[in-house]
């Protein structure tokens, strides 16, 4: 009697235990997949964010959607590729190449951004808002074809410049060091830009220019210089994005800027265009949405989910998630 009772209890306990184990494994299994998708989405999001930051910054200061921003990113990637190939021949180390190539990419992209503003946007500063927008689209087409003719229409392999950390090797199926690197850089760039705009003298001048250009001029702000500086900073973030993203993906061609630019622009609008943290938040949400849509539904509908989300958010928050809904200046 007692023995059978114990036996029963043991069987019962055993059953309970095995059931808990199965449940736990199931949760682990699902969580693992969820976690991987989440991290994948965050990486994708921070890729978008690196480009979206430049978009949103230029828009915040002069209310221009700079469609050629994606092309600046592409030019940054190409410069880095050329620089890395040359430096590689000189036999330098991986980290040195990464840093030197990034610096060169930043200088080149900034020069392009600066020139672009002077040629395509400055003469149109007092025109209706549609004119600079069309000029931006023109610059985008021009830069694409320029690189197409000057370089090649083929895809080119891009060396993986980002270092692989040894201690991450066991977890490489979940997250890899290049992904951490991109996430980290995005956050750093976002913080630096926020500090620059909120707490420095230049930032104050930028905010003044954004609020009222004429008034800023009257109180002694060199508006032309500030706008040029905005373009240079925006282009630098695009160049950093170009180097990191290209070495993460491993291939580039003249068209990458257009596709990435559209997604980054969407992300910037989602987060509230003009807002720096908004661009990052919007990008991360967009990246995760795409990742989960692929993971749990169907990758065919990845874009449907991404843009569906955009529509929904714009219906309920027309200024974007972190955007300020300010009444139009009359």
């Amino acid at each position: 009697m007692t023995s059978s009772f114990f036996a029963e209890k043991e069987i019962y306990n055993g059953l309970l235990l095995s059931r808990t184990i199965i449940l736990q494994e199931l949760i682990n299994f699902l969580m693992d997949y969820f976690l991987e998708l989440l991290l994948g989405g965050l990486t994708k999001g921070s890729i978008y964010a690196l480009i979206a930051l430049g978009y949103t910054m230029v828009y915040g200061i002069i209310e221009l959607i700079n469609f050629a921003h994606g092309e600046i990113y592409m030019i940054g990637a190409f410069t880095a590729l050329i620089a890395a190939s040359i430096l590689n021949m000189l036999g330098l180390g991986q980290i040195t190449i990464l840093i030197l190539a990034s610096i060169l990419a930043i200088i080149y992209s900034s020069a392009y951004g600066f020139t672009m503003e002077k040629i395509a946007y400055k003469p149109l500063r007092h025109s209706p808002r549609l004119s600079p927008l069309i000029s931006a689209i023109g610059m985008s087409i021009f830069f694409q074809n320029y690189v197409l003719l000057a370089q090649t229409s083929d895809f080119l392999p891009f060396p993986s410049l980002l270092p692989e950390f040894e201690f991450l090797q066991p977890y490489r199926h979940i997250i890899r060091s290049p992904e951490i690197f991109i996430l980290f850089t995005t956050v750093v760039v976002m913080v630096l830009l926020t500090v620059l705009i909120k707490f420095t003298k230049v930032g104050k001048a930028m905010r003044a220019t954004a609020q009222d250009r004429k008034m800023a001029m009257l109180v002694g702000v060199d508006v032309n210089k500030i706008i040029s500086m905005t373009f240079v900073i925006g282009s630098s973030t695009a160049a950093i994005g170009g180097v990191l993203i290209a070495s993460f993906i491993g291939q580039i061609n003249f068209y990458i800027g257009f596709i990435a630019g559209i997604k980054a622009f969407t992300a910037a609008v989602l987060g509230g265009i003009g807002s720096i943290p908004g661009a990052v938040v919007g990008s991360l949400i967009l990246g995760c949405t795409e990742s989960f849509a692929t993971g749990y539904v169907l990758s065919d509908y990845e874009d449907v989910f991404a843009f569906g989300l955009l529509v929904l958010i714009l219906i309920f928050r027309p200024a974007g998630i972190l955007g300020k809904s300010s009444s139009e200046k009359v």
Partner: peptide, 14 residues
């Protein structure tokens, strides 16, 4: 998959 996408790691995980 969407051609020209930046990152296909989600579909690879799937």
């Amino acid at each position: 998959v969407t051609p020209g996408g930046l990152d296909y790691s989600a579909i690879v995980k799937k």
